[in-house]
Each structure stands twice: as C-alpha cells, then as structure tokens.
Amino acid sequence: MTAVSTPRPARRPRGSARGAALTAATWAIALLFVSPVLWLVLTAFKEENQAATDPPTLFFQPTLDRFTAVLGADFLPYAGNSLIATVASTVLVLVLGLPAAYALSVAPVKRTQDVLFFFISTKMLPVVAVVVPIYVAASWLSMLDNVWTLVVLYTAMNLPIAVWMLRSFFLEVPGAIVEAARVEGAGLPRILWSVMLPVMAPGIAATALICTIFAWNEFFFAVNLTAAQAATVPVFLTGFITSEGLFVAQLSAAAVMASLPIVVVGWTAQRQLVRGLSMGAVK
C-alpha cells in the first residue's frame, strides 16, 4: 500500500518580497517629498486661526473663503502679467533657440564647444550681480514696471538652457532622414520644418515646458524691476507677509492658485515631457 504524498505549499519567491519592500520604501519616500505640498493644500482650506496652531489642526471644516479673498485681492492682473511674460518669452526662446541649436548640431562651426560653453557660462553669473546695470538700463529706456522687460529678461535667462537641450535633441535625429530630404531637393527651411521638427516634437515640448516653469516661477527680476503695473504672481505672494503678521491660510491659498496652471500644463504634457527627456537614453 503506497502512501499518498500531500503537495507542499508553494514558497513565495524571495524576489517578490524584495520587490514589495522596495515598492513600500518608494511610496514612503514619495509621500515624504509630497507631504509639504499636501499640507499646503490642506492649509488653504482652513480658517486663518486654524492655520498656525500648535499642535497643528488636523480636523476642520473646509472653507473656500481664503480663495475668495485671494481673488478679491486682484490676483487676476498678476496672473495675466505672468501669463504674458511666460508665453511670450517661451515662444521667443523657441524661435531663437531652434535655429541656433540646428546650426550647432547639424552644421557646427569650427569651435562649437567654445560656443556652447559661452552659452552656458551666462548661467554661472549670480543674478544679483547684474540687477543694478539692468535696472539702470531699464530706467534709461523707460522700461521699468513693464511686462515686456520681463519678456526680454526671461528669454535671455532661458535661451542658453534651451539651446543645449534642443541641440541634444537635434543630434538624436537620424542623419539618413536629412540626407534623404536633401536628395529629394528639400531646402534648409523645408528640412527643418517638415522633417526634423516632427521627429523631435517631444524634445521641443520638454524644452518649452521647462522654460515655462522657470519663467512662471521667476521672482528676483520681477520683484526688483516691477511695481504696480507689471508685477507677476510670485511678487503677489509676498503681499501676504506684512508687518501685521503672516497670513498663512491666505498665503497657502494664493500659492495653490499660483501653482495650479503649471501643474495642469505639466500634467497635460507629461507624456511628451518624458519622451523628450528620454530621447537617446535607449538605443
């Protein structure tokens, strides 16, 4: 008579346990980094007397009064100035950066590396070192407190980074495509517009998004060169820090409203952003 052997329960692979631990650790780190943003959003829905309590108020009745107060404090004109400065400077960066990046990638000059270093070296100078001559020049040209002054400065600020990024994207375009277009008789404008730009569209989107973020969040030039007519959203946020105290809840609501456009744009373009930043990473 033969004994019937009972099957042993399958052992859980050791790799799956490590994967679960790694996933839990990743979520913990992600929540740690996101927690200030979550706390900012929660504070925006509190009353002012609940925003700075010790210990913090965790349970409260949400209210939209702080957002209403921010809108009543003329938030929209500041947002309009930020929108004009951001969109106009980003468009100018792409218009100027695409031909420069194309020339430095497809038809490089003799000392291309020196040119690229010159571009990026402008980012090594502290902004505070140039604000006085810029202020004097803007005053002489009667361009103080003018949103188009910010457009010019934001364009100059983002152009070096854009040229470096766009050049790397141009280098990823297969040379055979360009040669085939030349054989077919396409000129330089046609090659750039109809052949190369569609291929590197994710890279252009990634460059535009990064320039948009930098321009929207820029504070130093805006606070020193604007007053009442051309002030941007970052300058508007400083209005809640007064001699009477810090209005934490209202400042949080204003910060949420100021961040929302960039978050929406980034969320909408996240696929293009990931594709653009990963161009050439996998061969």
Rank of each mutant, 00 (worst) to 15 (best):
A17Q: 11
P261K: 03
G97T: 07
A79S: 01
S142Y: 12
F170Y: 15
M200T: 09
A30T: 13
F221N: 07
M143W: 15
P174E: 08
E172V: 11
V131D: 01
A215C: 10
L22R: 13
G15A: 14
R167C: 06
L83I: 10
I262A: 09
V152S: 11
L32H: 10
R14K: 14
L237I: 04
P126C: 09
S259R: 01
V223K: 05
L166I: 03
V34A: 15
P9G: 01
S82E: 04
A85N: 05
V130H: 11
P108R: 04
M157K: 10
L32W: 13
L58Y: 15
L197G: 05
G72N: 10
P189T: 01
T43M: 13
V109D: 10
A24W: 10
R275K: 09
G280Y: 04
D114R: 15
V106M: 04
I84M: 12
F169V: 02
L273W: 03
F219D: 01
D74W: 06
E179V: 02
M196A: 08
G97W: 05
T242A: 14
G266C: 13
E48S: 13
M279H: 08
A201H: 08
V151I: 11
N158D: 09
F221L: 11
V131Y: 05
S194V: 02
N158V: 00
S243V: 12
R275Y: 08
S243Y: 02
G72W: 13
T242V: 14
S139K: 15
P160Y: 01
A17C: 03
P126S: 03
G19F: 06
R182P: 02
V195Q: 08
V95T: 09
G266W: 03
P198S: 07
G185F: 02
F247I: 06
G239V: 00
L40E: 11
L277C: 00
A201T: 14
R12M: 10
Q250Y: 05
R190A: 15
T149E: 05
I262M: 15
N81C: 10
G19I: 03
M1A: 09
Y135L: 04
V130W: 10
L166V: 00
A103N: 11
T242E: 14
T207H: 05
V127L: 14
G280D: 07
Q50F: 12
T232S: 12
I120D: 02
I191S: 03
F219S: 00
A227K: 15
A101I: 03
L277V: 08
V130M: 11
N217L: 06
V115S: 10
V152R: 08
L192T: 09
I210C: 01
L76Y: 14
V4N: 05
A85H: 00
T268M: 15
L150Q: 02
P160D: 07
Q61V: 13
R271S: 14
C211V: 03
S105K: 00
R18P: 00
E48V: 07
R11A: 13
V178Y: 00
A138W: 09
